[in-house]
Design a protein around this nucleic acid. Sequence first.
DNA 1: TTTCCTCTACCTACCGGTAAGTAATCAGCG
DNA 2: CGCTGATTACTTACCGGTAGGTAGAGGAAA
Lengths: 201, 201
Amino acid sequence: MTEMHKILDGENETKINIFRVAAKLFAEKGYNGVSMREISEMSKVSKPTIYYYFGSKEGVFKELVNFGLHYGSAQAKQIAALDIPVKQRLVKIIQSRFRISFEHPDFSKFFLMVFVTSENLPFLDEFKKQANIHRQLLVDLIQEGVDSGEFGAGANPQLASEIIGAVMGHFIGKQLKIKKKFLTSDLAEEIVELLFKGLNE
Amino acid sequence: MTEMHKILDGENETKINIFRVAAKLFAEKGYNGVSMREISEMSKVSKPTIYYYFGSKEGVFKELVNFGLHYGSAQAKQIAALDIPVKQRLVKIIQSRFRISFEHPDFSKFFLMVFVTSENLPFLDEFKKQANIHRQLLVDLIQEGVDSGEFGAGANPQLASEIIGAVMGHFIGKQLKIKKKFLTSDLAEEIVELLFKGLNE
DNA sequence: TTTCCTCTACCTACCGGTAAGTAATCAGCG
DNA sequence: CGCTGATTACTTACCGGTAGGTAGAGGAAA
């Protein structure tokens, strides 16, 4: 049983299957690009079965979002609390994200899509709030590095965290588009290294 | 007459209006989230008028993409050819992008959406090819900086250009979501400065 | 017998796209 | 100059098809 199944445990097998299929389809074609008929055909159940479990198309989508919110934030929080240099924690957080995107490409792709198009969907306010809380985690982490003297005093935590977030998102997005694996632990280190040292060195 | 109108010159006023409305709607809701009825109502023409000018929904979208490709690449190429330090050219390219996104938010939003969306539309292969050519411009620029000794020899041009591209996209996307202007020329400098010096300083 | 799950059959609203027609402009000819 | 036939720039009315969603029946398990 995968880690993901643990979270989804207690749920009906049919429901989990619909869940996975929907994640994949939404990730590929966006919310409006996917029809309930499509989901039902690919999960080999009838349309009303999906309505029985999720209530509506929006319901399927929201449940997927909540799952991702729950699944993704736990690990980052854990790493942020470790007693190692901030820089190493940053590397670990990025590595963790890279790993998740490799182990669950469909869900990751879905979630990245939600991130990127969140303004388009009118029912994602709760998601936006959660995403901001999660972003703040990075800001606090870098602030900690500045306060402790690990980073230069001139570093702007707000700006730096946005840059790290953007870069992380970019590489995960790139990985999810191609087949060949390039998102290694080493790359995570290289990225952090480059952001620390800058292009000058 | 704006710069944009110059490019669209020779085109009928009605067509330009449909063009603008479509850009805004597509940017807000994605390709599949917008209907031809919606475009026609907002541009105050009948639906067949849109078909008269663009042939199909896909036609509207593609023409928008081609316009953006043409409009966006010209300035970057010009800047890349200037006889000033690479770092300054990078700043200028980012500033130029910031300015475009400020002057034409609807078109920029549309274009960013096309770049970033995972609503992966089956008719955008040509666009992807063009986008890659454009990406290469940044790689070459940084390579030039490494060759001339302006950047450290250890800098990885491929990685660095991806990071710069990702960060640029992130900030433009952020600006387009909020009303208050924060995408200044100074911020462009600050970003490049941070990427050069790194968090260490 | 009730509860849970899943189905077939169907709804209304809207989709992208088109057929057919028309008002206005314009070029060329007598 | 006035007439004519073509062209441009649109319109109304409609098409077949598909969207999200539902009513209600059937079957299995308890």
